[in-house]
Design a protein around this nucleic acid. Structure first.
Lengths: 249, 249
DNA sequence: TACTACATCTCGCAT
DNA sequence: ATGCGAGGTGTAGTA
């Protein structure tokens, strides 16, 4: 696609607040929270309604460059060093971040006004897991009595909080995947804070997750906490519902 | 765009391992690490060389749905309930994750073979910050003598490790942004492990970051550690280099 | 492969 | 706005 034509259509689409996407050959520089440079190559570039700008290489999940919503976007022709190219620029409102793209060739370009008010519903996150543990305390232990869930304190928030028959306070930290060292330190922080706050010493810490890493287990036991193997809820759902069709959710 | 035409062109482009991007009206279901559903609306869909699949709503940085590289992608026509649509499906090789997209309308479509072997150079990450502190130990204190950087141990890795003139071991944990509770617990874990490993008690913990949150500071001081205000390196670079042009990196 | 921590993390929620 | 933690986190580095 000829660069002049591209520029005219780009500006027009941008002015109408459409979404834009194009494949191009470009070179990229970013300056802001870090400094980055990417040599010339083919990429796909997206610009959204809110001026979010995403640049993707032909492989990988994460964008190689991006600017968050609200940036100021411009596209200017440049002639220099015997070559012509377009300079796509995006600057944040506070002028702290810059993205500069030298566009040498545009392979294909499309733009359209997109309408979408839908929000994704999601099941099987950590919140659902703590719900499950509060509703099914036997998954933790026979004498666990949950009192609250997602208790917010100024030093963090506790997934499930309760007590046992022996009068111990019990704090449960749950993770959907293999619990690591960070999960243990997090649990420890909560336990110590509750002990301090309530002025007691009989606070039990329980880490509930499908699995735990060896080092984390070692540290957990050293601190007198315990691990309880618990599957995250949506895995159980799928097992129980035996292959219901995915399209009709 | 007519759905039949789209399908033919889609299959052809996919077979040739091109990158594909299109705007469409669709409804989405995901099942795998969680269960998700997104009602009908306009989105942009990307498919990369490695079968990475990304779906973006018209606003926001993160994809609303995605499948990582290596999935098996198919597009089939469906007639049912008096309506016709296309069923875009992506399944991981281990069959543990499914993405199902009902495509009701395709607004625009493009595809092209992208060639890109470039890798991004990036400066100003945490590694650069620990480098800076090792090279300029006075940023920590006048008597800090660094010994190693990014020391890997089985219980985590320490950003900068050294000692002072009084013979204390010194562990520096650095963060590029405001240090929070997690940074303090991380530092504490390293300090305690080193004390245990070396059988000593004189290990000083220092948290180096541009700022620290109030709760984190409270916890830091309670544990006898200290905070040192340090700017991440690339901010200094920009200040020192006084506005060098961004395009010529 | 598993484990660990960073990320220009992003996002949501609560203060 | 800031603080805090989850995320279908993704990604890199290492044992």
């Amino acid at each position: 696609m000829e660069l002049g034509d591209f520029r005219a259509e780009f500006d027009d689409a941008l002015a109408r607040n459409e979404c834009l996407s194009f494949f191009c050959s470009c070179e990229i520089a970013y300056s802001g929270r870090a400094e980055a440079h990417l040599a010339q190559g083919d990429r796909m570039i997206f610009i959204k309604n809110d001026n979010t700008l995403l640049i993707h290489q032909p492989v990988g999940s994460a964008p190689i460059n991006y600017m968050k919503a609200g940036g100021h976007i411009t596209l200017k022709p440049v002639s220099g060093n015997g070559q012509k190219y377009l300079h796509l620029k995006c600057v944040t409102a506070d002028l702290k971040e810059y993205l500069d793209v030298q566009i040498f060739r545009v392979h294909t370009f499309m733009h359209h006004k997109l309408e979408d008010g839908a929000k994704q519903e999601l099941a099987g996150n950590e919140r659902d897991m703590s719900d499950m543990l509060k509703e099914n305390p036997h998954l933790i232990s026979d004498d666990f009595k949950p009192l609250s869930r997602e208790e917010h304190t100024k030093f963090g928030f506790i997934d499930v909080f309760g007590h046992d028959k022996k009068g111990n306070l019990v704090i449960v930290e749950c993770k959907r995947y293999t619990a690591g060292l960070d999960a243990v330190t997090q649990l420890r922080r909560y336990v110590e804070k509750i002990e301090e706050l309530k002025g007691v010493k009989n606070v039990k810490g329980i880490l509930a997750a499908p699995t735990i890493s060896p080092n984390a287990k070692e540290m957990l036991e050293k601190w007198g906490f315990s691990f309880k193997a618990v599957e995250p809820p949506m895995r159980l759902d799928r097992f129980n519902k035996s292959q219901k069709s995915l399209v009709d959710w």
